[in-house]
Every structure is written in C-alpha cells, then in structure tokens.
C-alpha cells in the first residue's frame, strides 16, 4: 500500500516523464554504443555533457522565477573570450590565472545583474530584454576577441578532466552546483522564486519583494551559466566568440523536457539536468546510429519534438486530472 502510494507520488512529479525518456535514451545508447557503461566512456560522455547541464540549471532557475534568458549563450561566449585572453600567457604560473577567473566571475554576475534589473526593476518583458542584452554580450565578446584565439593553460585543461574511477572533476562541479541550488531552495529565496514565477501579483501582495527576487534569480542563473562557461572553456582550451551561441535555445529545450513550466513556478531543477542529458544523448544516438549526415539535423529535431511532446502532454494530463479529482 505504502509502496503503491510512493510510486503514485513519484509518477506525479513533474520531472517524471523526463526520467522515463532518459531511461529510454540510455537504453538505446547502450544498445548502439559498445562499452557505453565502461568507466572511461561514462567519463567522456559526462565531460561533454557538463556545459549544457550547468547552463540548463541556470536557465531553469530563471524560468522557475517567471523569467527567461535568451542571453545565456552569449554570456558563455563572453566568459570564454575573457578567460582565453586573460589566461593566454599564464603558462605554468598558477597565480597568473586568477585575474582571468575574477574577471569572468565579475562579468557573469554583472550580466546577471543587468538582466535581472531590466526584468525586475524596469519590468521589461524578459524575452525582448534578454534578446537585446544577448546582442550586447556578443558585441563585447567580438570586441575582446574578433577572431578565434587566446589560450587556456594546459594544466587547467588537464585539471578539469581529472578523474578517479567514476569520480571526475565535471561530476564534482555538477554536484556542487546542484547542492548550491538545494541550499537556495531551502531558504525563503527559493520559495519566493517559485511564488513569483507562479503568480507575481499575489506574491507582491503577500509582502514578497518581487523585484529583488527576480534580480536574484537572474544573478543566480548567470552564476550557473558561468560554471557552464568554465566547462566549455576548459574543453575548447581557447577562445571563440561564437562558442556559446547554440546553448540558448538548447538550454530552454532541456528545461521544458525536464518538466519545468515555461510560464514559471512549477517543476524541479533536477528535471533540467535530466533534460540536458537527454538532449546530449540524442546527439550521441544520431552519431552512433550511422544516420547519413544530411539527415542528422532533421532527426535531431524530430526526436526533440517527440521528447517535448511527451513531457508536455503528460504534464497537461496530470494537471487536468488533478483539477477534476
């Protein structure tokens, strides 16, 4: 009886369909890719998945708070070029990378602040506001590094791919990032992010400082995006202003596949993690299924639509049956 109830509760969770999809793509991947479960294959996969996972966590926090960030991709680009330019001559001098990290962090929090300010205090619609800021970040990135270049010291690149059996640097970063969200979720700010995302006017009437909550959700989101930017940068080992562009829409897709409502206020951040892994695995699948290259994009799109449809249709059914029962 208890177990039945627990199962029922699990199946009610908004990220439930994404878990099912995740299991399915893992099974398909395992069938197609030899040694899928070998330790080093898992580590390599995780390494390549890390940027999208971290960026999607950031996007999820912002969307949960009723916002949307179309600038995460160019935020990643700006962070990448800042680091590649400032760390280019660091060599083996460990202290010499500090300015690069500091500048990247200041830039990330600054970009979060600007986005949060336009959405929270100026009350501009986030879709347009962050579309505009995304152009600004991109412009800045191009100014700093007009054509691909710069470099990241090898010891940093190696350090990021450090691993011991299944414990690897990317895994540690993802876990720490998620724990940071858990920390926030366990504070009033976490509750308020959901409240503002669900019904801003009501939250305001209850004495919640809704502007500040929105501001913080963007800053926090940008912090996770920054971690994603680090991950990409350590893999690319150089700078390119175009590097982040594709992450914007992919991260939104990951969030929705993960069962988070685009209108905000419902869903769990862990769903975005699942969503990001799913989308990455789909790309793997296409690669290993030997699909001719001219069909790859087409197939990718079709699979994403399918995953989205599953996630969204399930949500709708759930909320309908809840409303009537």
């Amino acid at each position: 009886m208890n177990i039945v109830n627990q199962l029922k509760n699990i199946s009610r969770k908004p990220e439930f369909p994404s878990v099912i999809i995740l299991i399915t793509v893992i099974a398909l991947n395992a069938a197609l890719q030899k040694n899928f479960f070998a330790v080093n294959v898992i580590n390599v996969n995780l390494l390549t998945f890390t940027p999208l996972i971290l960026i999607s966590i950031g996007q999820a926090v912002i969307i949960l708070g009723g916002g949307l960030d179309l600038s995460v991709g160019t935020q990643v680009s700006l962070i990448n070029v800042i680091m590649a330019v400032l760390m280019k001559d660091a060599g083996d001098n460990h202290a010499a990378v500090i300015p690069g990290f500091l500048a990247a962090m200041i830039a990330a929090l600054g970009m979060g602040f600007v986005n949060g300010f336009t959405a929270g205090y100026l009350n501009l619609p986030p879709m347009i506001a962050t579309f505009a800021t995304s152009a600004i970040w991109y412009g800045l990135a191009l100014l700093i590094l007009p054509s691909p270049g710069g470099a990241i010291p090898t010891w940093l690149v190696k350090g990021f791919s450090w691993k011991y059996s299944l414990i690897s640097m990317p895994l540690i970063v993802i876990v720490l990032a998620y724990l940071l969200w858990v920390f926030v979720r366990r504070r009033p700010l976490g509750r308020y992010i959901y409240a503002v995302g669900s019904n801003e006017a009501a939250a305001y009437a209850n004495g919640v400082n809704t502007r500040r909550v929105k501001l913080y959700s963007y800053i926090l989101g940008s912090f996770f995006v920054m971690l994603g930017g680090f991950a990409i940068t350590f893999q690319a080992a150089s700078g390119d202003a175009r590097l982040g562009l594709s992450y914007t829409l992919t991260s939104i897709a990951a969030v929705v596949v993960g069962g988070i409502a685009l209108k905000g206020g419902s869903g769990n951040v862990i769903g975005a993690v699942f969503g990001a892994i799913i989308l990455n695995m789909v790309i793997n699948l296409i690669y290993f299924a030997n699909i001719p290259s001219e069909y790859q994009e087409f197939t990718k799109g079709a699979i994403i639509i399918l995953a989205l449809a599953l996630a969204v249709v399930y949500r709708r059914r759930e909320s309908k049956s809840l409303a009537i029962s």
């Binding site: 959901y194 409240a195 669900s198 009501a202 939250a203 009437a205 209850n206 419902s266």
Partner: peptide
C-alpha cells in the same frame, strides 16, 4: 483580498 492572493503552484 477579494481577488485572492494565492500562489497557484504552491
């Protein structure tokens, strides 16, 4: 409030 000030998702 007459127009309730509740958070629907909480």
């Amino acid at each position: 409030h007459q127009q309730l000030s509740l958070i629907p998702d909480l």
